[in-house]
């Protein structure tokens, strides 16, 4: 069983890809029945970050926050996902509430959840190219030109 690292009064787990599903299952059976949040982070521009020893930093990270109604506490799971192989197992079978969240991460960050029932884009149009929350995707700003107004004030 994995040890949680305590960060600002909250337990944080750093599982490897193989430990991920087992860890989530053990959390689920120890009363963390409510999955609050699942999101992804692209650490392309921030390669050095505080990670416990033995955890290899990868470009992507999946962050899962689970809540226990009994102990009224939250735990966080941070999973490193390789850039070259952005695949990870889905949590749909365990926490069906992550369905939309995983689709959102797929849509905006391009991570593939194996076993997800319906992995399609959720927020962007169907034929969109790229994944906007990636750091190498520009914000898409269109320069605004301010012109002198000819109107009489």
């Amino acid at each position: 069983m994995l040890e949680a690292v305590i960060r600002d009064a909250q337990g944080v787990f750093f599982p490897t890809m193989d430990q991920y599903v087992d860890l989530m299952e053990s959390l689920w059976s120890s009363d963390y029945k409510f999955c609050s949040d699942l999101c992804g982070v692209d650490y392309l521009e921030m390669p050095s970050r505080k990670l416990p020893e033995g955890v290899k930093a990868e470009r992507f990270e999946i962050v899962v926050n689970v809540t226990s109604f009994e102990t009224r506490s939250r735990l966080r799971v941070r999973l490193q996902v390789q850039e070259s192989n952005p695949h990870l197992p889905t949590l749909y079978g365990l926490y069906p509430g992550t369905e939309a969240m995983e689709r959102e991460v797929y849509d905006l960050l391009g991570m593939v959840f194996d076993g997800h029932p319906d992995l399609s884009r959720i927020l962007l149009p169907e034929e969109w190219e790229g994944h906007p929350l990636r750091k190498d995707y520009s914000v898409g700003r269109i320069p605004v030109q301010f012109k002198a107004s000819t109107a009489i004030r």
């Binding site: 609050s36 982070v41 921030m46 369905e99």
Partner: peptide, 29 residues
């Protein structure tokens, strides 16, 4: 419902990543 904010900072003046856990988004499921 539960409105969450996950914030990652890299020490600069702008958030490195800001994620909002939107209750409506999850409740729709």
């Amino acid at each position: 419902g539960e409105l969450g904010c996950y914030l990652v900072s890299d020490g600069s003046a702008k958030p490195y990543r800001m994620h909002i856990r939107a209750p409506s988004f999850v409740n729709l499921q």
